[in-house]
């Protein structure tokens, strides 16, 4: 089967499917199959002991050069996984360049950072530690400090064949972060079939959300976070806004391709209320 014929088959199949939501929406019906938004999985399969180790590390200020900053400093799970500041304050009071994203449901992001420079949470975990204006430390120091702690030595020794290493630390933190999801929201319950979980207004809003095309980008379990999109898809956002910073270049900073200028990860719309 060549590509062309396969294309025709797929096209034929999808015709009916695409027309589905179209008519569904118009009917404001209750058929919840093929919703652009998926419920957050109720369970995760992470190792609880590793996750616990990751939690300790996440809150451990020894990851920073002067033992003042921990991951939780800017991504405090108690405060929605963020610091609540427009841009974060790092070590020695350093002022960051961007807004701290929430750690909740961060595992649902297909890449990390706004510009997607980290492919996963493991990759992401090391970056703030070494960032001079964030934790300003390095792996050797961090490993040295952690090895001095007998509890860590025991914990790592039990969980990782090589004990305290960069990979192990990153993995533990990422594992902990993957447990930080917010499942079973009322909307999720709705999506799972409980038509009473949301109000009529909320349902209307959802229908509008879909019919106005919001869900074109904000879809999936995280209601976003699984694609890049140009800020100002139809109109030029940054030209209108002005005062363009380097960070505004977005994904361009990662790929160096002109077409990726001003592209950012589509933010998750979960828990934003």
């Amino acid at each position: 089967m060549d590509i062309k014929s396969r294309y025709i088959v797929i096209l034929g199949l999808t015709f009916a499917a695409v027309s589905g939501p179209f008519y569904e929406a118009s009917a404001a019906g209750l058929n919840l199959k093929n919703e652009p938004i998926s419920p957050i999985p109720l369970k995760h399969n992470e190792n609880p002991r590793i996750a616990n180790l990751g939690r300790l590390l996440f809150n451990d200020t020894r990851l920073s050069a002067n033992n003042t900053i921990s991951c939780a400093t800017c991504h405090d799970p108690k405060t929605g996984g963020v610091d609540g500041l427009p841009v974060s304050i790092g070590i020695y009071g350093s002022v960051g360049t961007i807004n701290a994203p929430t750690v909740y449901n961060s595992s649902l992001n297909f890449v990390q950072f706004w510009d997607g420079r980290a492919a996963n949470l493991e990759d992401q975990a090391g970056a703030p530690i070494q960032n001079p204006i964030e934790m300003n430390s390095n792996w050797d120091d961090v490993i040295g400090k952690l090895k001095a702690d007998a509890d860590y030595r025991v914990a790592f020794g039990e969980l990782y064949p090589n004990g305290i290493t960069r990979e192990a630390i990153s993995n533990a933190i990422a594992t902990f972060e993957r447990t930080l999801t917010t499942p079973n929201a009322r909307f999720d319950q709705f999506l799972r079939g409980d038509k009473t979980a949301i109000s009529t207004e909320e349902l209307d809003g959802y229908l509008l959300f879909k019919s106005y095309g919001c869900s074109s980008c904000h879809q999936g379990a995280a209601v976003g976070g699984n694609m890049f999109e140009k800020m100002g898809a139809l109109r030029d956002y940054f030209s209108d806004r002005g005062n363009i910073t380097n960070a505004d270049l977005g994904r361009f900073n990662v790929t160096g391709q002109q077409e990726h200028k001003f592209e950012f990860k589509v933010p998750s719309l979960r828990n934003i209320a």
Partner: peptide, 25 residues
């Protein structure tokens, strides 16, 4: 396939495509 399915709306969101992408990676 997921890309084609997505294109023609057979998949309601990108999660599957992303998963497929991650799976390839």
């Amino acid at each position: 396939e997921d890309m084609i399915k997505t294109r023609f709306g057979l998949l309601p969101n990108y999660d599957k495509l992303v998963t497929a992408g991650i799976a390839v990676t």
